[in-house]
Design a protein around this nucleic acid. Sequence first.
DNA 1: GAGAGCATGTAATAGGTTACATGATTAC
DNA 2: GTAATCATGTAACCTATTACATGCTCTC
Lengths: 181, 181
Amino acid sequence: MKKYNHTTYAILGILTTGCRTGYAIKQLIDQSLNHFWKISYGQIYPTLKLIVEEELSIVQTLSERGKPERNEYFLTDKGKAVFKNWLETPIEQIPVERNEVLLKLFFGRHQSKENTLLQLEDYQQKLVERYQLYQNIEKMITSTPHNTEDVTYWLFTLDYGKRVTNAAIEWCDATKEHFIK
Amino acid sequence: MKKYNHTTYAILGILTTGCRTGYAIKQLIDQSLNHFWKISYGQIYPTLKLIVEEELSIVQTLSERGKPERNEYFLTDKGKAVFKNWLETPIEQIPVERNEVLLKLFFGRHQSKENTLLQLEDYQQKLVERYQLYQNIEKMITSTPHNTEDVTYWLFTLDYGKRVTNAAIEWCDATKEHFIK
DNA sequence: GAGAGCATGTAATAGGTTACATGATTAC
DNA sequence: GTAATCATGTAACCTATTACATGCTCTC
C-alpha cells in the first residue's frame, strides 16, 4: 500500500470524526490535539488537494445562503482503507526529540553555574505553565458534557502529557540541586 | 545580535569542545548527544561554510602525510561571543512534540480495543529498549575514565532521558489497563 | 462602520533527510 | 585485495512555517 506522510494520515483521521472543511480541521487540531500535534493551513489545503487527487476523498462545494462558500471533504472506501491500514501499523521508531535546553546544558562546563541555574529555572517555569494548561483542559472537558467515549481518549492523551511534563519538572528540581550548592 | 538556527549554535558549541572537523562533529553528536540531538552531513558542511562566511570561525586546511586532507575549524572572538549570547538566552518556547502513537490513540474510538492494545504494547517495548540503551550508556561512561566534569553534564542529559522515558512507560501500563478489562 | 469569525488558498523561506559521488588510509 | 574508517561535499527532495491575499457574514 502506498505510503503518505503523517500530515495526510492526521487529516484522513479527522475526516472520520465528522469534520468536513479545511477550516474545521485546523480548529479541531488547535483545540483538541494541540498538546501533541499541530498543523498549518499551508499543510492542510495542499494535503486536501492531494487526497482528492489520490482518490482517498471526494469534495463537495457548498454555497448555502447566508454562509461563505465551503468545500466539504468525505473519505472514499479507498481513503478509509488507507487510514485503517495506518492505524493498524505500529510506528517505525520513536523520533529523537531535539531539546535545546539539554543542548545548552551539555555545554554547561563552559558557562557559569549562575547561568545554568537561570536556564533550568526558566525551563522549569515553562514546564509548570504547560502542566497547568493540561490541568485546565482536563477540568474543562470533564465538567462540560461530551460524548463519554471521546472524553476517555482525550484524557489518555492529556495524561501522557501530564506524566511526561511532570517527569521533566522533577528532573529540573534534581538538576538544579547541583548548581545551588 | 544576528540570529542563527539551532544547528549553527550546536556546531559553534561543539567547536568549543575541541572537535575541529565536520567528520568529528558528526561523530561527537552521534556518540554523545544522540538521545536529544541529531544532525546529518547535509547540515554540517553547509553550516561550516556559513559560519566562515559570517566570520564566526576560520578554517585551516591540513594535509599531513599519512592522513587524508582535512579542514579544521576554529572559533573567532565573534563566534565565541555569538555562542555565549545564545547560551545565556532562555529558549523561546518548548516545542510541541508530534507523537504518532497519541495521534493513533486519539482515533481509538474508531478501532478495535485489540489493535489499540497492540499499538500500546509496541510503543512500550520501544520505550523500554530506549530506557535500557540509556542505562547502558550510563554504565559505559561511569566505568570508562573521562574528565569528571564532562561526565557530570553528560549524566544530567541522560537522567532527563531516563526520567521522561520512564514516565511514558508508566503511562503505557496505566493506559493498557483500560483495554485489557 | 469596525472587528471578529468563517473560509480558502499560495509563495517564499527554512530546516532537514537521503542518496549519491569521491578518494585517501589502515588493518586484516 | 578488500573492507572499514577517515574525510568532504552536493543535489534532490520532503516537511513545515510564515506571511500574504482574498472575501463573505454577523454582531456590536
